[in-house]
Write a protein that binds this DNA or RNA. Structure first.
Lengths: 249, 249
DNA sequence: CGGTAACTTGATGCGGATCAATTACCGTGG
DNA sequence: CCACGGTAATTGATCCGCATCAAGTTACCG
């Protein structure tokens, strides 16, 4: 093995490593391959394209771009957003490793939203026409993709409920608990993590201003529910947070 | 033809008439068969089940029921809603003839929401496992269903934006314009219709109280934008309403 | 290390919620 | 057909949570 001279010599263990397949990706258990047999994963692998990682701020796609593919996040974090009639941004979701994004493009064959990287992120591109074909051949793939889209619908509906009924405290607690749960799914700490998005993005997503988000988090901190150091968060009392978020399912 | 003695002798021209197939349903142009060839419509017809009409207040399904089918509304109007952690209702959508409901049940194989009739409604039940099979055989069916789910996602995201950014006036105007457009799609009047849902349902859906909905509508009425007589609405200045709703797409 | 963007904290104001009281509607039975 | 009771809708008065405006403070990046 050649000793690398540049600083990216640690590349092989880097989570953005492109030399990976669905078969050996440690996200297999939560990503698209979830229910697949080995030979089906091979077929999926033939379709999936892995490009260079996106840098922070780079777009995967923008509103109005021709829809060609859905994307699986392999590392990093992505935010999806739309632009309102009067030019404002509305964040519609945050996507973490193992999650699929871009399904809103199917209906009109153009993306209805934009997606950009919140930090350096590796992405698996899944060209849709080839994937559609695979779906027809492999019932479990079709079923699983129906389920993924359905999941997107139910999570959007949860957000609708949140925006319609909940207070600022409840909204912020919900987001923290949600991120915690999604970390747990990836076998990461459910109580100690870094928020990849800005306070502005959080506020935008939750239908609150930056100031309100900041105040709520400060208050949670004073109440010893969380401990914050800029973007690093520690959940000190997850159960209480869940209560505040009034998580039922 | 036998002269009917009972008052439902007008049954044959009634929109709830069960003696109908996808092939002769006048909603074909906007419903599931949209893109299908004649022989494919026949296959779809073999799957679709048409039961007796639902009376006002009757449920199609409830949260937690086993997911077995998606449903097409043939006549009437349906509201979908979930129950929040603290027992409150959150209306997530209204569904009119030609629209498909129940797709949120796919992901967990249980319905995530409940659906009930706002007035007497005829429903086409589409058993999902048989439909899945048809999707695999007929690519256009699969594609069309992907599109329907995607559409549900984008319309949920529009609602998210509405709830997050818009004022009471904008929300109410949006709903009126939306219902108007959906009526137009069915070749009904886009300016003169009856709201099948209560003010409470409207408010719940839009994240407002009954009182606010009532006030906004009264104000719109004073401004000669609409004319209201209980549930009957006439849109007097659709363009202005669209401006208020700041419809872009 | 300077400049700028991100974040925090405080003071004030407003849109819509809440509380309260009529008024209009509708199904039901006399 | 009309009287009546219950529900839905309207209208008014008050209140409160979060937005807005403003002023620091801290992190970040070239």
């Amino acid at each position: 093995m050649v000793i690398a001279t540049s600083s990216d010599s640690q590349h092989k263990s880097c989570p953005h490593n492109p030399e990976i397949s669905c078969g050996n990706c440690r996200l297999g258990a939560i990503c698209l391959p979830l229910t697949l047999e080995d030979e089906e994963i091979v077929k999926l692998d033939e379709i999936v394209r892995r490009g260079r990682p996106l840098q922070k701020g780079e777009h995967m796609y923008r509103t109005g771009d021709d829809f060609t593919a859905v994307y699986a996040v392999r590392s990093g974090a992505i935010k999806a957003y739309r632009i309102t009639g009067d030019g404002e941004e509305q964040v519609t979701g945050f996507y973490f490793p193992g999650e699929i994004i871009g399904m809103d493009g199917i209906s009109k064959n153009k993306y209805a939203s934009s997606a950009k990287a919140l930090e350096t992120s590796a992405i698996c591109e899944i060209p849709f026409s080839r994937f559609e074909e695979l779906s027809r051949q492999v019932p479990t793939v079709q079923r699983h993709f129906f389920q993924l889209m359905s999941q997107e619908i139910t999570s959007d509906q949860q957000l609708i409920t949140l925006l319609s009924k909940n207070t600022a405290d409840e909204r912020v607690a919900s987001l923290l608990v949600s991120i915690s749960a999604r970390n747990a799914r990836r076998n990461l700490s459910d109580s100690n993590f870094r928020l990849p998005m800005s306070r502005a993005d959080i506020g935008n997503f939750l239908g609150l201003t930056v100031e309100t988000v900041s105040r709520v988090m400060s208050r949670f901190s004073k109440q010893k529910l969380i401990s914050i150091n800029n973007k690093d968060v520690m959940l000190l009392d997850i159960n209480r947070l869940k209560e505040i978020a009034s998580i039922t399912d």
